[in-house]
């Protein structure tokens, strides 16, 4: 499982950041970036298929478990290799590593549930279906006016 963002929907409200921080004891795993005052995007763990953070982790704290990149805080020594191994810069280390746990134990990741603009999903098909139907309708109307 991973998150997908519909960039055209993101409004940069940073709700995902605040919500993530709220359910993770004050240390969040999402960072919203703004680009040229024209778009925003939340950056978070992709739960990469070939997770370089897990590859760099020597202690076994980070490991693949089905489709997610899981984290066992008990094994983490805070060495920081994972932070340096994340191509997207979304694993932080502060004595221990902080990364997305997909809100283990909750029905849905909090960032997804809380997104006011409905921009996040754990279901890529859902987002791409939505985008495709939007594109098809725009085309049927002779393009966007």
């Amino acid at each position: 499982m991973a998150f997908y963002v519909d960039i055209t929907r993101c409004i940069g409200c940073r709700s995902c950041e605040v919500a993530c921080e709220r359910v993770h004891g004050g240390r969040g795993h999402v960072q919203v970036h703004f680009v040229e005052d024209s778009a925003s995007v939340p950056l978070f763990c992709h739960h990469c298929e070939e997770a370089s953070c897990a590859a760099a982790c020597f202690s076994g704290a980070l490991f693949k478990e089905d489709t997610r990149t899981a984290f066992d805080v008990e094994k983490c020594t805070g060495c920081g290799l994972c932070s340096l191994a994340c191509p997207f810069g979304v694993v932080w280390t502060d004595k221990i590593a902080h990364k997305c746990d997909l809100c283990d134990g909750r029905p849905e990741p909090t960032c997804v549930a809380t997104c006011p603009a409905d921009a996040l999903s754990t279901d890529l098909d859902h987002l791409s279906r939505r985008a495709r139907s939007r594109g098809a309708r725009a085309a049927a109307q002779g393009g966007r006016r």
Partner: peptide, 20 residues
């Protein structure tokens, strides 16, 4: 890591930014 995030943000938004 900060520049990786910036690059990722620019990469993922490029199409949207251009359209806007």
């Amino acid at each position: 890591p900060a520049c990786r995030r910036r690059a990722e943000a620019e990469r993922t938004t490029a199409e949207t930014v251009a359209a806007r």
